[in-house]
């Protein structure tokens, strides 16, 4: 059974440990601006919402890439950027309707959540279990799924 990130915004206190852990895992630096998970703050309601790629079935980014730089990790199901192949054209950043593939000026390539190869550091770091890594069919993924913008009305092949 593949696992997925489950996000429960009700439990998030906005401590940003996930952003720190994510940036450290991917860049070796504690630099939230380079994190691929992002905590949105809703000041008006005093709410915090961690937000990252859901590894969606449509894989818009992967489909759009002109040089085959995005592949599915067979073990984790994550859509991963192959940095050596990516030319930095950014077409995946506009193809992804969730805005979860982003261009990094620092590397000239794009970055997205890769589930840390199966041991997501954001979930590890979260002190309140707002982010957990659980069996895929138990996640709150439906939240984004019913937002899921489809290109066709048929079942996916």
């Amino acid at each position: 059974m593949q696992r997925a990130l489950s996000i429960d915004p009700g439990k998030c206190t906005g401590c940003l440990q996930c952003e720190l852990a994510c940036s450290f895992e991917h860049t070796g630096l504690f630099n939230p601006s380079r994190s691929v998970i992002r905590v949105f703050t809703f000041h008006e309601e005093g709410r915090f919402v961690p937000y990252t790629c859901t590894q969606c079935a449509e894989a818009w980014c992967l489909q759009a890439c002109p040089v085959d730089a995005i592949a599915i990790n067979a073990a984790t199901g994550a859509k991963e950027i192959n940095e050596a192949t990516c030319v930095g054209c950014k077409v995946c950043t506009i193809a992804c309707p969730f805005g979860t593939v982003n261009y990094s000026q620092a590397t000239g390539k794009v970055v997205k959540c890769d589930l840390c190869g199966g041991d997501p550091q954001c979930a590890e770091a979260c002190p309140t279990q707002a982010i957990t890594f659980v069996d895929a069919d138990q996640t709150g993924l439906e939240r984004m799924r019913h937002w899921a913008v489809k290109t066709d009305a048929a079942a996916h092949a």
């Binding site: 506009i94 193809a95 309707p97 969730f98 805005g99 593939v101 261009y103 937002w147 913008v149």
Partner: peptide, 16 residues
């Protein structure tokens, strides 16, 4: 602006 530009597509396409 390069951060999360994809959401602009998501918003247009989902008609929310």
């Amino acid at each position: 602006h390069t951060e999360k530009v994809g959401i602009l597509r998501g918003l247009i396409q989902s008609r929310r």
